[in-house]
Amino acid sequence: MRAPQPVRRVLVAAAAGVACFASAAEDIDWGPYEVDGRRSGYTYAAAETRAIQDDDFENGGLLWVEKGAELWETAHGADGASCQGCHGDAAESMRGVGARYPVYAAEREKLINLEQRINQCRTERMGAEAWRWESEPLLAMTTYLRHQSRGMAVSPVIDGPAAPFFEQGKAFYTKRRGQLDLACIHCHEMNSGNMLRAQRLSQGMSNGFPTYRLKWQGVGSLHRRIRGCNEDVRAETYAPGSDEYVNVELYLAWRARGLPVETPAVRN
């Protein structure tokens, strides 16, 4: 999808008698990348970065999609089963899955995200070992699966049994932490559009993950990104796959509701 160049018009607000910058407002039609003021990281990315995402031949993340497609068909584990053996054509059976995860899993009495569901299939149904977090096969399979929902609106379920976990994710998002004493809201709500030295702050949306980051020269998970944001404020991090990160993942999905799944998005 093509989008025009941003034209910036910065609004200045005053808080507690001290001048500070509020989020930049822009007169641009971002098409599906903006829903009721909620904007994909795509709309904050540089034009060159957007162009790479728009072109499947340039977008390095598609390599992970291909690797995932191979793994989908390959038998793994003691039982000689493949994902395809149970689920058939991923384009059909997996369409929509990436748009609604993470979900409440009754058998675990907590949320489960896509990576964890993949490993649950491996350990409980295929006699295979769980893939390590951020390992190439887990990234490839996660990217492949979420890619099956590309273009679909992010639409998590946050009520019913998921509600308390959603609330925990929201609390995580608003809690100041680390030596710099900053919460996610300081960068991604109060300052989206503003610069953090050379980096333009986005609304911190999750709809493009796993994302191909030019800085990483590869695909990385959402939990890797969140851990990086924790490290940047000199906070003690949680392990990828921890309940804390899965809960905030649901809150992020709700923040991104209505935005299209972009996996694999391309970001700086």
Partner: peptide, 18 residues
């Protein structure tokens, strides 16, 4: 509500990296 970090404070902070 400020975003500006306190540069000379060690108390009242949450989960500072070890």
């Amino acid at each position: 509500m400020t975003m500006m970090p306190a540069y000379f404070k060690t108390e009242g902070l949450y989960r500072v990296a070890p």
